[in-house]
Design a protein around this nucleic acid. Structure first.
Lengths: 196, 196
DNA sequence: CCTACCGATCGGTAGG
DNA sequence: CCTACCGATCGGTAGG
């Protein structure tokens, strides 16, 4: 077996094309909605012919599912990286908020925005998504609980986590990179509403 | 011209059927998305044949536009009714929040949820929607400005109105009528995050 | 991954 | 508002 410098053509190339499809599919699903995006749109966006996406994915729904799961997992890793080593829960919350805004507005996967399209999936796929999504939620609940116990939350009333997610996720509806607000400023504003 | 007790068959019946179409279309668009809802779905939901919705509306997009505009206008009236006569801006804000939650979660039009589908409309239609939507936003800004001047807001930082709308609109993603939280409780929690 | 294609479905229309 | 229909498009497949 000769040492071959290049990645083995077949497998590595396939993996790259798969990623291309996922990235463009995510972008189009967010932009136009799942139902209004055709598999031909996606193929064209990566320079393939209309039938070729089905070499990589069994169906259009499979593409949506994979885009959501891989997007959520990347977001989860980013959230962990941003909060690791921050012992003070208030500081950690602020860092998590900033990381979540990054996941929503800076990346190319837009994972949390894809969650709107969960309705387009069948029940088993929905369950898979829910499992990945729950881990993400759990990280937040842990930090919020710590803050509540320490009496550092402005209100420990029930739906605090959900209200926070609302504030943050809704930014996808109005945030513009060239607008007057930076992600840091938005993160500060959101954090200051929660913290006592 | 004889006094006829019944509403004149033609016009009144047409108007009723039009409303039926708008209501069911709004429900389906929210449930499945605009792209994934067929005009046949909508026709079937009101007991018509596949071609008949086009007697009332020129196109599927026209149906979406009308559902959004009429839903927004109904919501606007409800918001006005709820806040009329409340001189204290804090009290008024709390009433507006409750009314907005009602618009989102109690009515049958789900107008604010339809706003997600603005992307499915062409530019002129988008402009029409924006005009109606701006009036709605203006009512909030007025009350928030009053509170800011009086120093009764927890933070007068820029995106407060947008963060508030995020909290409220996101409830459509998690609120369940049989869940542990009433709309009044949610309204209280949201208002208490904003008010000093 | 392309070519060539299929069956199904879709938005919309004509004519009554 | 129904009947009957059309052209276009869509998700997906077979065979290479």
């Amino acid at each position: 077996m000769p040492a071959d410098r290049k990645p083995r053509q077949g497998l590595a190339a396939d993996a790259n094309r798969r990623e291309d499809l996922l990235r463009e599919a995510a972008r189009l699903f967010v932009e136009k909605g799942f139902g209004a995006t055709t598999t031909r749109d996606i193929a064209e966006a990566v320079g393939m012919r209309s039938g070729s996406p089905f070499y990589h994915f069994r169906s259009k729904q499979e593409l949506l599912k994979a885009a959501m799961i891989e997007g959520l997992e990347a977001g989860y890793r980013r959230l962990q990286a941003a909060s690791a080593g921050l012992a003070d829960p208030a500081q950690r919350l602020r860092a998590m908020i900033r990381a979540h805004l990054g996941n929503l507005l800076e990346g190319s996967c837009h994972a949390p925005m894809l969650l709107y399209e969960t309705r387009s999936l069948d029940a088993p796929a929905r369950a898979e998504i829910a499992a990945v999504s729950d881990r993400y939620q759990q990280m937040w609940q842990t930090t919020l609980d710590e803050l509540a116990v320490a009496g550092r939350l402005r209100s420990s009333a029930g739906p605090l986590r959900l209200l926070l997610f609302g504030m943050l996720n809704w930014t996808t509806q109005w945030y513009r990179p060239d607008g007057g607000l930076s992600l840091d400023e938005i993160a500060d504003a959101a954090a200051s509403l929660l913290l006592a």
